[in-house]
Structures are given as structure tokens and as C-alpha cells.
Design a binder for these strands. Structure first.
Lengths: 222, 222
DNA sequence: GCAAAAGTGTAACAATTGTGACACTCTTTG
DNA sequence: CAAAGAGTGTCACAATTGTTACACTTTTGC
């Protein structure tokens, strides 16, 4: 049916035909979405389980002044708002908006709950997804609680470093990174420039080459 | 056996004797802990489910400079590190230290997993706990992503406001609040003082009286 | 009830970050 | 290939927050 579903964390360990059977036994629908659309606003109730099939979404916090903090990007075949379907306060924590057109599988909570109880493996997978989500948020907090921009940069680089090559392939523009770190874009550029002057790394567009890894680590260790 | 367990979110909906039976069928131990002890360091693997029976714990992030950010306080009969037992990276996200002497129930992961599959209700409860944890962390991020200290104060007050009385009973000292908000203590005091001068509220030790709630809301809305 | 410890108010000053602006470069797309 | 759009480097300046210090008050523990 949807081949990509077999690769979803939710269906790990299941065969294609098992996934198909499960989906066919569950009420569901396919929702198309297109560019720049906002699929859900922060505070809205989460009533459906959603699995992204195509396209790309992002969750971002937007304050009333219009400043935004990008929390995460969601790509297929990830679940959307997985950790916010159950629990005491099941509302979207962020605005959910479209980066790239696509579609997703939608299952209402009641039917999703039934599906979980129908298959022990899916339930286990879901538990892992939700735990993983909490762990992701926890790392995000680690991140936000670093005080200085230098610390944030150092932490980000060390997290994404390929240890063999000392090279980091950046998935974000400086603008995007500034949003991710929750700092102003020119401030980020200035700090990067300072750290380059100190010979910690070379920052060329999408490619960052670490020159002095001990110095980068020292930013966090003092 | 342990009466307090019946009130634990994990065992919601179960009778005392059902809880007793479940615990008796599960390998477990009781761990005592005493003041100022650090029970686990950030990064350590989480291998046991823990339910606090007596005393009080706190989770705090400590960076290498010694600065700390208090994430939460844990009181009986809450679970400890519930969202970090499963998932891809099951390690403590914070230092777990003792605020008040006490004891906790400890169940190794393998045995805990068995208990979850033995009782559907406990499993459901656990799912709600983990989701709730993710939601808590998400709110924490909301919090940390407010830029100015004024915004943080306003948000905190509005979250804890008793809407009938316009009074907030503070559970934290200014020192503790500063840690919670991730700001320096004198900076917090200064900002509180400014907001008092602007007649937004009166801050007397443990009691905060809101004088102009619209003005407090306006701090967040502009 | 008294001494010690913890918490609070406040100040001057330093450090960091944000703002707004502008020129420039790179990428996209018709 | 040209124009438009998005991203980058950089600046001067403003605003906010942190640091350190010290006197004072409140709470705790014996």
C-alpha cells in the first residue's frame, strides 16, 4: 500500500503485508498539504495520529512579536506530534507548518489506540518513539541553556561532527541555524567570525572544517 | 505493602491489593538515600525504573563552569526519569540529587517491562506519564525561549496564578526561581524591583499579589 | 534565644547580545 | 542569461544581562 510506512519507526519489525493489514483494519485518511500552509497552531488539541508520507514539515514556536524558534524539521516517514497525542495536556506545543508539499496518513486517536492494542510490537515502537521525543526535547533544553553563542556553536559542532574527517556538513543556513539556536542572525555571524579568527574552524557555506578540536571542546569546558 | 504506591500515576485505576500483587510478582528493591547525595550523573545509563516513596529529589543540569539550571523537583509518588528508560538514548539528562532524605522503589528494566506487559492499565498509565513528561519538557522550552527576564517572570506568574484571588503563593525562593529561569539572581531581583515600580505586582517573600494583570499579560503580548 | 547559614536588595561596572542598516554574493527561476 | 530572492559579512549603537561586592534581613539548627 504505502511502502514507505514499513520504514517508519512505528512499524519497525513488521513485514509489508502486516503493515498493510494493520492499516486496512484501521480507519484512516490521506491528507494533502501544500507550501507555506500552517497545518496546526500551537495550543490546538491533538486528536489524530499523523505519519508523514511525503514532503517536509517544521515545528516552530512563534511569539507574539513574530520571533520564531525552530524546534525541529519532520521528514517521512516520521510521526508528527507523537508525544502529544496522549498525556494530560494533548495540545500542539508549536506551530506546524509546511516546508515542502506532500501528504500524510491520518488516524484518529480512538482508532490509533485500537491499533496499538492490536499489535504489541507497534505499541513497543510507539513507546520508544515517545521516549525518544522526550529525549530530543531534553537535549534541546541542554542546548538552550547554554548561555553564550560561542557555547551553542561549539556544542552544535561537536554534536554533528564526523570524527574521522573533522568536517561538518551543515544542513542549515546561518539564518536557519540562528533560529535553531534562538539567537539573532548577525550576532551568530559575528561570533562565527570571531571563532574563525581564533583558528577554531573554517566555515565555508555548507562546510565547516574543525582546525582545533581541543579549543572547540574547551569552549564548553570552562 | 506501600500504600503510597496506589496514588502513583503508574498505578492509577488499580486497587491496593492489585498493586501489591503486581509488586510482589516483580523483582524489586528499596533504596535509601540521604541528603546532598547525587544519585545519578548526567549521561549515566538508566537501567532501572524508580518510584519515589519518601523524600524529595531534584534534577538539574550542571555545566562545567558549575552553573546549574534546575529542571524539576520530584516528589512521591512520582516516577524518576520515566521518559528515559526506553528510547534510543536511555541516559540521565540531568544530575539527580537529593533534597530531602527518603527512599525509593527500584525495579530493573527487564522486570519493569514484564510488569508493563502483565497489566494493560499500567502500560496505559506509563504511556501517559511519558507523554506528560514530553509535554513538561516542551513547556520548559517555551519558558527558556522567552528572551527577556520580564517575559519569563510574566509567564511564570500567569502560569501559577490563582485567578480568583490574583495572588500567587511562591514555592521557590528568588534564588531558586533564578535557577529555574536560568538567569543570574541579582538580575532577577533587579527586574522584579523594576516591575514593582511599574505597579505590575507586589512581591513579598512568598506571596505575590498581581496589581495590574493586563499589564502583566502585555509583557508577553508585544 | 542566639549564632550561623541562607536569602534579599542594591549598586557600579563589564560583557554579551540584539537592532537596523547596507553592500555584497549566491542561488533560483522564468 | 537576467532579475529577483535569499543568504552573508559587517558596522555602530542600544539594550539587556551578568559579575562582584556588601550591607541587611530572615530562617534554621542547636
Amino acid at each position: 500500500m504505502f511502502e514507505i510506512l514499513k520504514d517508519s519507526p512505528l512499524f519497525r519489525g513488521l513485514e509489508q503485508n502486516e503493515v498493510d493489514t494493520l492499516i486496512n483494519n484501521t480507519l484512516h485518511q490521506i491528507k494533502q498539504f501544500s507550501n507555506k500552509e500552517v497545518l496546526a497552531f500551537s495550543g490546538e488539541k491533538v486528536e489524530k495520529a499523523m505519519i508523514l508520507l511525503e514532503g517536509k514539515l517544521q515545528g516552530e514556536m512563534v511569539d507574539l512579536a513574530g520571533n520564531s524558534l525552530k524546534i525541529e524539521e519532520i521528514e517521512p516517514p516520521q510521526m508528527v506530534a507523537a508525544a502529544f497525542l496522549y498525556g494530560p495536556q494533548s495540545v500542539f506545543p508549536v506551530n506546524l507548518s509546511v516546508l515542502i508539499n506532500g501528504k500524510m496518513l491520518v488516524i484518529y486517536k480512538k482508532d490509533f489506540t485500537k491499533m496499538l492494542s492490536d499489535d504489541q510490537r507497534v505499541l513497543n515502537n510507539y513507546l520508544n518513539i515517545v521516549s525518544g521525543k522526550a529525549q530530543f526535547l531534553s537535549r534541546k533544553i541542554t542546548f538552550l541553556s547554554f548561555k553564550t553563542i560561542k557555547e551553542k556553536i561549539a556544542y552544535f559542532l561537536l554534536q554533528n561532527l564526523n570524527k574521522d574527517t573533522n568536517i561538518i556538513q551543515m544542513n542549515h543556513s546561518q539564518k536557519g541555524l540562528a533560529e535553531l539556536l534562538g539567537v539573532a542572525r548577525p550576532s551568530l555571524a559575528r561570533t562565527i567570525s570571531e571563532m574563525e579568527s581564533d583558528r577554531l574552524f573554517l566555515w565555508k557555506r555548507n562546510l565547516v572544517t574543525i582546525l582545533d578540536i581541543k579549543a572547540v571542546q574547551a569552549v564548553l569546558g570552562k
